[in-house]
Design a protein around this nucleic acid. Structure first.
Lengths: 218, 218
DNA sequence: TCCTTGCATGTCACTTAGCGCCATGGTGTC
DNA sequence: GACACCATGGCGCTAAGTGACATGCAAGGA
């Protein structure tokens, strides 16, 4: 599934860069959660990963953005789902099957990442720095969503309509993520959100005025 | 309209605090625009306003957030419009009349603030720090929107449905703001966006699945 | 009127975020 | 083996942001 493709080209491959950023983000998020953002120094994060502080700042523009990769994985779930969404399948059906597939194939690391993501999204409620990182991650998601939608409806990704739909869809996903995350961290039963995919799919469908989510030629 | 209410109570009134933050934000935004964010120091901003650096950091948690009040004013336009939205009037009608009223009563300062807001939203496209501030401002807007919508549909503001609608509405408004701002700064004719209020009102109506924007009892 | 209390601001010292610069080492190509 | 490229580390510096303490201003009470 995640076999490291042999990268023969020059420079650090995007994959390796991505992996390293995620690794850093994991440690940073853990520290943020355990001892707070303010009390966590760049040196601590760097040492936890086994890097020099200088290298840390080469990979992240500031402390708060260290949380972004973990936060992104929290919604990457939804975007990756949308990415390979067959044209002739409704969003609702595809979403539910995708969730089923995820729960079957998810590794231990995946679950740990999910936990970290939830923790960060909760931390975002009180820590402005993390909130900014969360919003930046969602913004990133929104731009990817715009690409996906653009390809679907065959319109330019930087057009107003596509951007509106992407914004609305991503906002709906974000609202759900925050809501569920908050509920889970206060001890809610995960099974309570079993029908979340269906609800999210419908909400996305509704928020985009029916443009995203249905079957093209019904 | 904005007569300074006599504040006899102890402590700095919210109004004064708000005004000072806006004043700081104006100077900060101007400097950000003129010489870039990285080249602008906290000392420069403080000196431009006539404050000590220490006091600057008492009013803003970091440099980037100095842009928030100006950015907020860019969308405050929409939220203040929604705030006094009569129940028996459609969003579209209210929006257009509100815009007409604004263009008649706006002061020179208002227009300068609008310009600054547009400049910042454009700067947000390239400067991650400003982008974070922009997203934080929109997030703030979204929370105010949730209050407004909650009062409208008579549901708790922290419920999932209200938050979803607020998120979708605010996302749509944001997408429009970014789009129009970018167009204006590249020399587009402002008259070209004369029907923007109507389009935004309709988009909000659509994005909230019809829950926000129509006349309650048609 | 004087004293007190509360609060915003200023000054100084300090930690640390974050970056420019240069050296080093590891990896791929000729 | 020589060379080029690039990620990393180390050092030093500027600037972001904070804690502690002093000052000054306004309101209110005796």
């Amino acid at each position: 599934m995640d076999g490291t493709t042999a990268d023969k080209r020059r420079g650090m491959s995007d994959l390796r860069r991505h992996r390293l950023r995620l690794e850093i983000s994991r440690e940073a998020s853990r520290l943020f959660w355990e001892q707070g953002v303010a009390a966590t120094t760049g040196d601590q994060i760097a040492r936890a990963v086994g890097l020099s502080t200088r290298t840390l700042w080469r990979h992240f523009r500031n402390k708060e953005s260290c949380a972004e990769p973990v936060l992104l994985r929290g919604v990457e779930w939804e975007t990756s789902m949308l990415r390979d969404w067959p044209r002739h399948v409704s969003l609702e059906d595809h979403f539910t099957s995708h969730v089923r597939h995820y729960t079957l194939t998810a590794t231990r690391t995946d679950h740990l990442d999910d936990l970290l993501a939830v923790q960060m999204s909760v931390l975002a409620r009180t820590e402005p720095a993390i909130r900014a990182a969360w919003l930046m991650a969602c913004d990133q998601t929104q731009r990817e969503l715009a690409e996906i939608i653009a390809a679907r409806v065959d319109l330019p990704a930087d057009g107003l309509l596509v951007r509106m739909h992407a914004a609305a869809a991503s906002a709906v996903i974000r609202a759900h993520s925050e809501y569920i995350g908050a509920a889970l961290l206060t001890g809610a039963d995960p099974l309570q959100f079993a029908d979340a995919p269906r609800r999210i799919a419908r909400a996305v469908h509704a928020a985009t005025g029916g443009a995203v989510g249905g079957v093209p030629a019904a």
